[in-house]
Structure formats: C-alpha cells, structure tokens
Amino acid sequence: MALTFEVDPKFDSTLRDGICALWADVSNAGGAVGFVPPVTTEDIRPELVKHLVSMAEGRTRLLVGYDEKGAVAATAFLVRNTHRLMSHWLWLYTVMVHPGHQGKGYGRELMSAAAEAARGTDGIEAIRLTCRGGTGADRFYATCGYKEVGRVPGAIRVADGDDRDDIIMLLPLG
C-alpha cells in the first residue's frame, strides 16, 4: 500500500504529536536525523518548534506521508535558501520514514514527492541535502538521483571516538 502525501498540511496537535513520535522512533532505531538514541518526544519537541517557526515565516514547507491508517509515516522539510545568491535551490531536512515501514519503497516515494514539491516552488532549480556518513544514506540518495558534491570529513560527532563525514548531495530538477 502506498503512502498518501500532503504538502503544507494544516498543522495541529495531532500532526505535531505524530511528527514527534515518528522522529523519536526513527532516532531510536538508529536513523541519522539529528539525534543519537535514546531520545523521547520531549527531546524532539524543541527541534520541531524550530521547523515550525521557519514554516510560520514562510521559509519552510512540510511534506507528510500518511499510511493506510492515517498515521504519520514519513516526513521531509523543504527549506528555502535565504541567501540572495543561492535562492534557486532549497534544502531538504529531516527526511524520515517510520522504521515499521522500512523496505516497502516508501523512502523512494518520499523522495519523489519531495522533488515534486520542490518543482512546484517558484524559482527552485535544485534540492540540496546533507547526510551522515557511515549509514548508507548517501547510497540511498544516489539511487534517487542525487549526486555527492561535497564531504566534510569527521564533521559529525556521534560519540567520543565516532566522528562521521557530513556528505553534501544535490539533485538538479531541470
């Protein structure tokens, strides 16, 4: 069963709680989305608030994928670049698929929906994202058409003695 995607959904407490739960579940399963396990939804909430502020300011769009039960199963945040010389591309952040839905092709569906949402944004010609080295995420994004365009060795400190590369990837939309 495919996910149902919505861009810029009405934000309410149910959606907030669904995103926080998804983010915690992905993080606790080892997903590289800004946290290291163990985390709770209360640990996640302040980071989600930062995204919400950016949404209120019109710089960020939210893409949500709902499963057949209507639960939040996937998300991505599309963030406009505010630098005047780089406004022709946007950032893709916090790309997540619930661990219970891994292996169903939902990640590819999410990336395709994100590209469609970006194409529907005036003046956007490319999507840029970063991912944590050592997770295989770069290989996944490459299968979705992204190309590695940069790498900062050891930029992400997961734990003492566990530094990972910050991999920069780009998807031209033209």
Rank of each mutant, 00 (worst) to 15 (best):
G65W: 00
V64L: 05
T75D: 04
R84T: 13
G58Q: 08
R80C: 05
L62A: 11
A71Y: 14
L52N: 07
T82N: 10
V97Q: 00
G100I: 04
K50F: 11
P99K: 09
W91E: 04
K69W: 05
V36G: 04
T41S: 04
W91A: 03
T60N: 12
E68D: 13
A73G: 12
G58W: 12
V72K: 00
N81H: 10
G58P: 07
D43N: 14
A71R: 13
H83W: 12
V39Y: 12
D67Q: 05
G100V: 04
A74E: 02
L78N: 00
R80M: 11
T41D: 03
S87C: 08
M55P: 01
T82Y: 15
A56Q: 14
Y93F: 13
R80F: 07
V39T: 08
L85F: 09
Q102I: 02
T60M: 12
Y93D: 13
R59G: 04
H51V: 04
A76K: 00
N81G: 08
K50S: 12
L48K: 05
L90V: 03
Y93N: 12
H83V: 06
T75K: 02
V72H: 02
V64I: 13
L92E: 02
G70P: 05
V97M: 06
G103I: 06
T94R: 15
N81W: 08
T94N: 15
G100H: 07
G100C: 03
T94L: 14
H98R: 08
V97Y: 01
H88M: 04
R59W: 14
Y66P: 00
A74K: 00
V97P: 00
G58C: 07
G70N: 08
V79F: 10
R84V: 14
R45E: 15
H98N: 08
L90Q: 06
V97R: 00
S54K: 10
V39H: 12
N81E: 14
V64K: 01
L52Q: 14
V72G: 01
L92V: 11
V53H: 11
V36F: 10
R45A: 15
S54V: 03
Q102Y: 14
G103Q: 11
G103V: 06
T41I: 10
W89F: 13
M96Y: 05
D43A: 10
R84E: 07
K50N: 12
V97I: 11
V53K: 07
T94P: 02
